[in-house]
Design a protein around this nucleic acid. Structure first.
Lengths: 131, 131
DNA sequence: CTTCGTGCAAATTATTTGCATGGCA
DNA sequence: TGCCATGCAAATAATTTGCACGAAG
């Protein structure tokens, strides 16, 4: 069920895995980043590869207030989407694993993938709120 | 921040709250359901009201493999999207509250809304898999 | 080699907007 | 009454598709 490796697909994955891109880009932002490195890549190719990468579990689609964003699929973690500054924070924690185990045990479900997204205030915006 | 109550908005909310609609409709399915009861309602009105209802916290947008679905916003609960039959199950449990409290305590975030979505196998499809 | 992925442009689908009118508060 | 929401149609944005060609395994 694994698709072919092409330079286009690898570039997308590479861009998403760079720390400086922890912006969790939208497909539009991702397109800009991709084209910055290779102008010859077509928009349709980006769509097609994003779909494949999601299906293959290499990247993750995140739901925000105004659309989708993408993240490299590392260890199980959640996301906080700040309602004020709209940035997306990774929230790593042990508890998710426990939650999944608990749900599988109690509700006869088998969980293969998670999308845990919180809306709220990020640390920075909480500070500036209190000023 | 509350918008006006119109019959269109109330119809949408009503349809989403009926138990038999636990199908968690896409906007397309929702449109069909709405038009079944009142053909005069325009598509744009449905889009506009869905946005308002989400903003007002009355309904919730759920991310699935192939788009969005909508659910009435009851008590905090998660969703299982079955990778086989594509149905969406509500997963009520105590643990979510604990998870949120834990994260707020440990990561200096303030959580106002949650989107907890799991992909996996529903009870029915697990059974049929084992046959 | 053979099959799958690509770039391009066109097609399709999804969502938003402008405007004149009607309806809630 | 005044302002917001509506329906309609047109505009725009987002995503998909068909096709001929090039590249991966």
């Amino acid at each position: 069920m694994e698709t072919r490796n092409t330079k286009q697909k690898e570039l997308i994955l590479d861009i998403l895995s760079r720390k400086e891109n922890m912006i969790h880009p939208t497909i539009g932002e991702l397109t800009t980043l991709v084209l910055n490195e290779d102008k010859s890549i077509g928009q349709a190719t980006i769509y097609r590869n994003i779909k494949k990468l999601v299906r293959e579990g290499k990247i993750k689609k995140i739901l925000t207030n105004d659309g989708y964003r993408y993240d490299i699929n590392a260890d199980l973690h959640g996301h906080l989407v700040c309602v004020k500054c709209h940035s997306v924070y990774d929230l790593y924690d042990e508890s998710y694993n426990k939650l999944v185990a608990h749900l599988e045990k109690n509700y006869q479900v088998k969980i293969s993938n998670t999308n845990i997204i919180f809306d709220g205030l990020c640390p920075k915006c909480q500070e500036s709120n209190n000023k």
